[in-house]
Simulated scan of single mutants.
Amino acid sequence: MPPARPVSLITGASAGIGAAFARDLAARGHDLILTARRADRLESLAEELRARHTSTVTVLPADLADPHAVSALCDALAARGLAVDWLINNAGYGVPGTFEANDWPTHEAFIRVLMTAPTELAWRLLPGMRQRGYGRIINVASLAGHVPGSAGHTLYAASKAYLIKFSQSLALENRHLGVHVCALCPGFTWSEFHDVTGTRELMNKLPGFMWQTAEAVVREGHDAVERGEVVHVTGGVNRFIKALVKLLPDRLALWLSGRESKRYRDLGEAV
Rank of each mutant, 00 (worst) to 15 (best):
E220S: 07
A15L: 12
F193C: 06
D75E: 14
A171L: 04
V181P: 03
L87D: 06
H153K: 13
R28F: 11
P2V: 13
H68V: 14
N90F: 01
S14F: 08
V233H: 03
N90S: 03
A51F: 12
S169T: 15
M129Q: 02
F209G: 12
T11V: 07
A72R: 14
V233G: 07
F193V: 13
Y134E: 04
E220W: 12
A109D: 15
G228M: 11
E47P: 11
G152L: 05
L254P: 09
A22G: 01
D40G: 11
R80D: 07
K246I: 10
A83W: 08
A51V: 05
I137N: 09
V230E: 09
E201F: 08
L9F: 02
L73V: 07
K242M: 15
R80I: 02
F209C: 14
V140I: 12
K246A: 15
K205E: 12
G198V: 02
R52V: 12
L77Y: 06
R136F: 10
L114M: 13
D75S: 11
T234L: 13
I138C: 12
A141R: 09
V225H: 02
C185Q: 05
F21E: 01
A214Y: 00
R80F: 03
P207A: 03
V231G: 06
W123A: 14
K262E: 07
E269W: 11
C74S: 05
N89L: 04
P127E: 02
L32Y: 01
L184W: 08
L143N: 05
L125W: 01
L32G: 03
V230M: 08
D75Q: 15
G16V: 03
N90I: 06
G268Q: 00
S261V: 01
R80V: 00
A22L: 07
L73H: 08
G221C: 07
A117Y: 06
C74G: 06
P3L: 15
A158Q: 02
G92V: 01
D66G: 04
V57C: 05
S8W: 12
A26V: 05
R200G: 12
A27H: 13
A270V: 09
E47I: 11
E43T: 10
A157K: 08
L121E: 04
Y162G: 09
A171Y: 14
D63I: 02
G187F: 03
A65H: 08
A151E: 04
R251L: 13
D40S: 10
A141V: 00
T98N: 12
P105F: 07
